[in-house]
Design a protein around this nucleic acid. Sequence first.
DNA 1: CTGAAAGCGCTAACAG
DNA 2: CTGTTAGCGCTTTCAG
Lengths: 358, 358
Amino acid sequence: MANTTIKDIARICGVGVSTVSRAINNHPDINPETKKKIMAVIDEYGFVPNDSARYLKRSESDSIAFLVKGISNPFFLGMVRVMEQFTQKRNYAAILRHVDDDQDEVMVAQALVKERKLKGIVFLGGNFTHDPESLQQISVPYIFCTVGNEDEFELAGRPLVRDSVRYANVAVDDLVESKKAISYLVEQGHRRIGIVTEGLDKPSVGQLRYLGYKKALEERGIPYDPKLVYEIRTKDGERYTRQNGYLGAKELMRDNPDLTAIFCISDVIAIGAIRAIIDSGKKIPEDVSVVGYDGIDEGKYCVPRLTTIEQPQVEISEATIQFLFDMIDGKREPDNLLMPAKLVVRESTGSGYRSGRE
Amino acid sequence: MANTTIKDIARICGVGVSTVSRAINNHPDINPETKKKIMAVIDEYGFVPNDSARYLKRSESDSIAFLVKGISNPFFLGMVRVMEQFTQKRNYAAILRHVDDDQDEVMVAQALVKERKLKGIVFLGGNFTHDPESLQQISVPYIFCTVGNEDEFELAGRPLVRDSVRYANVAVDDLVESKKAISYLVEQGHRRIGIVTEGLDKPSVGQLRYLGYKKALEERGIPYDPKLVYEIRTKDGERYTRQNGYLGAKELMRDNPDLTAIFCISDVIAIGAIRAIIDSGKKIPEDVSVVGYDGIDEGKYCVPRLTTIEQPQVEISEATIQFLFDMIDGKREPDNLLMPAKLVVRESTGSGYRSGRE
DNA sequence: CTGAAAGCGCTAACAG
DNA sequence: CTGTTAGCGCTTTCAG
């Protein structure tokens, strides 16, 4: 019971193993009668073929994998769905795998390519800190999706990976989009704008978004004040949390009584900030405006609804999977694709011109 | 490059394959010198052993799997973390796999047991609709965690699976806990209490929680009114969404102007309901109280903070994984374990006694 | 300490 | 249409 193999089934049915194999794999060259009989026995004995053996033997397998870094980001899940559908239409199998924070996704990819004879890989999430060497070891087309832009490397003064490896990448231009958010705030009259960010010490989207903030201020001739920058520095575990947003906003407000707006580098963080502002007895947006980044569902329902930089999930997903298949088909070379995001103004932002204050 | 095998490495190093194998697997019987040399070559060639082949050959593997049903539930992710840690302490490997909504998790489990020589399995989420036959086919200890209680079957008039298969199960008593929520509301003076639920036609936690609602009303002598029941009936896709909560609350309020409280069978649904109530120009909890179920992080930060039935994530996780290992060690038999949940009163509920109304 | 050889369970020629 | 057979890449005896 525990370990029925194809041999057992063959013996029981009085046929050869290859016939059983044919039955399992819907091979055309098999008598429907025989097949039916075999399937009945398989069912009775609860036989499940050993995938390891299967894939070991198979030389090809029309399948691609989605490697999601970080266990929880709900943002990626909708994207995976879109891509899975597309994959199905192409008659490819989709393998979804989570990669732990402390695991190397490129390693996992390599193992999977060998193990499952993948045709392609989509990397979702994580930061762009890959070793060119191991990247080059991947023998099938792959694409990074919503992984922090590699410009980070440049900012960090490191040699760019893309100089040695030509990889495909689909992402939003974090710096530009974050500038968009700040510019909007400035246009609304805000001058003292705080930011809750993360990862300033390393290549990360947090750093990029922070740089966008800085740049926007600069362009608008508004002095940059380090006191207005709160950096999340929790040691381990998720940093994009409501709690961190809460703590950040609290500190920012305490240190800057004249602050009128807070930009958070993610919606989840912004939700925490909103709570902190309200708990301080202030009104949103009358006293303090809040802008997030991502465009998650939660932001459409929270009170007040969140103004944010919305990343076009569906478009990004479609562009990514299309790109991957184009590479698999040999119709396209790896390239960097920048997708436009959109500032969605909802209820958490308002005018920065104060009437009766200070 | 693309397909280095252990043979290649052996040839390059001028040793036998078994020696390379020993190096890879930290086998004690190997000359440190030889090992170092081999590891260097492996590194240089970027060799990654083929797991399929590995597991095919291995007869044992001290590993357990977590099968999470439904792709996105953030509730399970924290639980998996806790269990993974525990697993690590026991020097077992943890395999995390998502099971698609349309996939049969028992099937996946069986395949994985064969493929990876699992020692045990934890099933997270999904509904309890398993075939006793296939359940019995699983040859290693397994446990269901936060999977809808099987009492559902009884309610649905079906023979209980537990009568034919003795399986382990850790869960909250959905019926009792939901009664707790309603009782609290009644004690606050509420009489016209709406419910946003799901899955009334099939065994599901939604049904159980609905039955708790009904029962609590009955015990308190409050008439049950079907008009106060909103059932989510979306065809495909996730049903536990903010949008469904929004729609449900809207309809409930429209059809019942005298309603003073809404019980939602999940926090996510409750968040949507809150938004709907506010959009209708009503105040929470002055006009309408809201109670959720789960105890997710979002409920602690939303405005107003959500009163809810909090499921003790950590305790459930620990009890589950401990139970599984006890079974693996042969120290415990499969059993049904009920964990207590807790009503956490926050800001979304208040008195149901109206002063100047109707 | 090391190498040769026997499979793990399956698929894919190949020959009936 | 069906059975026989040769491996897929690795681990693991079993001799050296």
